[in-house]
Structure formats: structure tokens, C-alpha cells
Simulated assay, not measured.
Amino acid sequence: MDRTEAPELLLARLQAINETAAFNRWCGIELLEAQPGSVAIALRWRPELGQYAGFLHAGLIGALIDTACGYAAATLVGRVLAAHYAVNCLRPAVGRCFVARARVVKPGRTQVFTACELFAQGQDGESRLVATGETLLSVVAGDPQ
């Protein structure tokens, strides 16, 4: 993995990976930003993403945190798989768009620790923190990248 890769090339590489994931395509997950060790992804609200009260489903909150953290780790070490992740739901996730910002806390040869914040962007243009999370990711050996 080339840690000096230009941000626009890094973003394009992650966008190509994102397009291969059927779940991400179904959700509508988009990559917004990529730097070595950090990413931002977005998900636009659709009613089928909600739970019974109309909030973003907690399963999707976890998916956004897991995905953002995985991409942040991939910017430094290549392919990874989640070994463990934890999510803290701070308030109902209500908004027109959700943005997850993840960063690598500590990279390693076999494990990567990451952290993420998930924001809901409301109709008023305000962003509100709705969840936080962290992941422990295992580096996939034999990465062709």
C-alpha cells in the first residue's frame, strides 16, 4: 500500500471498491472524501432505510460506521475485515443525509483500530452527532494491492 497516494486517486480507488459491494449500492453509500487514514461517506435518507418510528435503522447506523472505518483502514493497510465493532447511538438518527467520518486511531501489521462519528444533516442544514463507534479490523493477508 502506497501511503503517499494522492487523495483524488485514493478516493477513486475506494469508490471503485464501493461499487463492487451490492449492499453498499443498495443502501446508496457514497464516498465523499479520502485521505491517508481517514474517510467520509454519506447516505441519503429513503423511507425504506427507517425503522418503525421513521428513524434511520440502528443496523444501518452500524453498517455506516463499519464501512467508514473499514475504508479509513484500507487507506493505510489495504484489505481488512471487521473483527469487532461497537456502536453508541446518542439520539434518534433523523435527517435528509447521514455522514460518517472515520479515522485510523492505530494502524498495525495485523490489526487496525479506528473511530467514527455519524452525523445527521437536517432540513435546516444543521449537522447533529447521532452516533459514535469504533472498530478493530484484521488485515487480510496476501492483499494484491
Results as ranks from 00 to 15, higher is better:
N18F: 02
N18P: 02
N18L: 06
T20Y: 08
A21F: 10
A21C: 13
C27D: 02
C27P: 07
G28A: 06
I29S: 01
L31V: 14
L31P: 10
L31F: 15
L31E: 08
L32W: 08
E33W: 11
E33M: 07
A34M: 10
A34E: 12
P36Y: 11
G37L: 03
I41A: 10
W45L: 09
R46Y: 01
P47K: 12
E48L: 11
E48Q: 14
Q51V: 12
F55R: 05
A58Q: 10
A58V: 15
G59T: 11
L60T: 12
I61T: 12
I61K: 03
G62F: 15
G62K: 13
G62I: 07
A63K: 13
A63Q: 14
A63C: 15
I65L: 15
D66L: 09
C69M: 13
C69T: 09
G70F: 13
A72G: 14
A74N: 13
A74D: 10
L76M: 11
G78P: 11
G78F: 01
L81Y: 11
A82F: 04
A83D: 12
H84E: 15
Y85W: 11
A86M: 13
A86I: 07
V87W: 08
V87F: 13
V87M: 13
V87K: 05
N88L: 02
C89H: 15
C89Q: 14
L90C: 07
R91I: 00
P92A: 14
A93S: 14
V94Y: 07
R96Y: 09
F98M: 08
F98A: 06
A100W: 09
A102D: 04
A102Y: 03
V104M: 03
K106Y: 00
K106I: 00
P107V: 00
G108C: 06
G108F: 00
R109F: 00
T110W: 02
Q111Y: 02
F113N: 01
T114R: 00
T114A: 06
T114S: 06
C116H: 10
E117C: 04
L118Y: 08
F119R: 03
F119Y: 15
F119P: 02
D124E: 10
E126Q: 15
E126P: 02
R128H: 13
R128W: 05
V130S: 01
A131K: 04
A131E: 01
T132D: 03
T135H: 11
T135K: 07
V139P: 06
V139R: 08
V140I: 12
V140R: 03
V140P: 03
D143K: 01
D143M: 03
